[in-house]
Simulated scan of single mutants.
Amino acid sequence: MVHHSATRHAPGANGAVPVVHHASYSKPVMPRGHRFPMTVFQRVHDILREEGVIARGQTNCFVPGRAPSVDELCRAHDEDYVRDVRASALDAKREREIGLPWSDALVERTLMEVSGTMLTVDLAMKVGLCVNTAGGTHHAHRDRGSGFCIVNDLAVSALRAIDSGAVSRVMIIDLDVHQGDGTAAILANEPGVFTFSAHAKSNFPARKQQSTRDVELPRGMTDDAYMAVVAAAMRESLEDFRPELVIYDAGVDVTSNDTLGHLDLTVEGLYRRERMVMDTVLGAGIPLAGVVGGGYSPDIDELASRHAVLHRVAREMFVDHGL
């Protein structure tokens, strides 16, 4: 089911975890002072190359080779909305709700980010683990965008995996500091998808949706308390639902230095979280597709390093679990 990639090597080549990246992830230019750190995704890729997570020659880096089809997008979104996004035909009100300055480059980025997560899922199902350098647009609803999210890559990719017949049960584990409200709303009537969201109770969005399981966390929660609560709830949900695939939204806006987070995790706490999630899921024999989720800081290098925790731990786990 792996769709066309611009690279020709096999996933898992040389024992390295596959990483998905597309240059358009950082292509749109944001106005000076804009809160969305668009340049960070290319910086994540560069850090992974510098550290060897992406191997020399990029033999474990995969590039989505096509945009998602209208049919793929319409499994999660209304057809009129999809066509308006693709044609840059949203009105000013809908653009304001998204919060990003519109451009053809933004449309390209939006579509290729969805395609990147689709490819991440394909490769994860093939070799057991794959991570994207972007993704996690969980505030996009069926007929509208919100909170810097235009199309919901998590919902599109989960439904595509089920529709293909490759799996019948998908769990989306969303540990971004903000609730995955769009994901929850889109997938509310999809029995094959379990939406798990552990998020700050006091944070955006003000009006929460109902996930299959919501874990609301108090402001200022630190590493040990976070790990105890989230790990227990996640493991219980995995045991109850028994998914055949996990899509993991690894938002780093849970850390104390994030400009839009209300929790107080340390960077070491991020490492603990990623090891717990991956070790638990992979240890149960379930493929995991990871996306970066949210993270906000004017210091792009610092933010990119936080996002890269996902990929660094994925490199460890790919070897430790013999994938």
Rank of each mutant, 00 (worst) to 15 (best):
H138Y: 04
D224Y: 06
V70N: 14
H321R: 15
D104M: 14
N203G: 07
P64E: 09
S146L: 13
E274A: 10
V121S: 08
I173E: 06
A105G: 12
S168G: 15
L282V: 02
D249V: 13
D214V: 03
L90I: 09
F36K: 03
L238V: 05
D122V: 02
P243E: 13
A10W: 09
V292Q: 03
E51A: 06
Q210F: 10
V313Q: 00
G15L: 01
V267D: 14
N203W: 06
A166C: 08
N203K: 06
D80L: 07
F194E: 04
H22E: 08
S305M: 12
S146N: 12
E236L: 11
F62V: 01
V254W: 05
M38D: 11
P31G: 09
G294V: 09
D104P: 12
V167L: 06
E113H: 10
R96N: 00
C61S: 08
V229N: 01
R32A: 15
R242Q: 15
V177N: 13
K93P: 01
D153E: 05
E79K: 15
A134M: 14
H45N: 15
H199V: 10
N189I: 06
F318D: 07
V85Y: 11
V17F: 04
A67K: 10
V313T: 14
V121M: 04
H321E: 09
D264F: 11
A87N: 08
Q209A: 15
D240W: 03
P218K: 12
R207V: 15
G65H: 11
T59A: 11
S26A: 15
A87M: 02
T280H: 04
C130D: 08
A289T: 01
R169N: 07
R272Y: 02
S88W: 07
N60F: 02
V53E: 05
A304M: 14
D240K: 14
R86W: 12
L270Y: 05
I172N: 07
E113W: 05
P243L: 12
R272L: 12
Q179R: 09
T59L: 12
D163V: 00
L303T: 04
R306I: 02
Q42E: 15
P191E: 00
G285H: 06
A198E: 04
V193F: 05
R160Y: 07
P287I: 09
Y81C: 13
V20E: 01
R49G: 00
S297K: 02
V167M: 10
L90D: 14
L260G: 02
H139P: 09
Y25Q: 00
E316L: 11
Q210R: 14
N60T: 09
